[in-house]
Amino acid sequence: MLAIQNARLFSEIAEKSRELAEASQHKSQFLANMSHELRTPLNAILGYTELMADGAYGEPSEKMLGILKRLEANGRHLLGLINDVLDLSKIEAGQLVLELSEYSVQDIAQTARSTLEPLAADKKLAFKVEMAAELPPGRGDGRRLTQVLINLVGNAIKFTDTGEVAIKAEANNGSFYISVQDTGPGISAADQAKLFQEFQQADNAITRKKGGTGLGLAISKRIIEMHGGKIWVESQPGQGSTFTFTLPVIVERQVEAA
C-alpha cells in the first residue's frame, strides 16, 4: 500500500519538475524573443538618425543636428532601459549565467573611465582612478563586473554637480574592494535602505528629473551576490556618497540566489 502511494508521489514529483523546467524554458524563449522584437525597431531609429546626422540624406542644418543628437541620446537611453529590464528578468528567471574567466580590475576601471569620462567632463567634474599597486588578476565575469562599475560611476556623475568622482580599488585577504566616491548631495539613511530594491530610486521626483530605470543598483547587487560578494553605500546628506563592493579575487563557481 505504502509502496503504491510512494510510487504515485514520485511520479507526481517527476511530472511537476518536468512542468517547471518547461515553464522556465518558455520564459527563456520569451525573453529572447522580446529582446529581438524590441531591438529591431530601435536599430532602425538609431541607424537612420546616425545616417541623417552624417549627411547621407543631405547636409543637415545646425538646428537639425542638435535635434538628431537628442534623438540619438533618447534612443540610446531606451536601449539602456530595455537592457536593464531584460537583465533583471533574466536574473529573476534564473537565466543569468556568469561567464567566469580571468579579468583585470585595471581594465575594468579603464573601460568605465573611457566610457564615462566625457559625461564627467560635460559637467566639469574631476574623474580620478586610484588603484593599489600590484592588484592580482581576478577570476569572475569581467563583462558583468564592468557593467556594475559603469552603473555606479554613471550614478555618481548623474547626481554630482560639482567636485569629483573617484574609483578606488584594493585587494585584501583574497578579496577585492572597489569603491566609487562622489561629492554629490548624499543620501539619507531612510533612502539608503531602499536603494538596492527594484524600481526604487531614493525619490520618485529624481527618476523624472535624472532618468534611469531604478533597476541599475538592483541588478548590480544581484551580479555581485552571484560572485559571492556584497555591495553597500556609506553616505550622509551633504557629505557625498561612497558605494563599495567586495568580492573574492577568485570566483570558481556562481553563487545561486537564496
Binding site: R39, T40, L42, N43, I45, G47, E50, D54, L79
Partner: peptide
C-alpha cells in the same frame, strides 16, 4: 559579429 542596434559607422 555585430549586435543590433548597431551604428552604421
Amino acid at each position: 559579429y555585430v549586435p543590433e542596434p548597431y551604428s552604421p559607422r
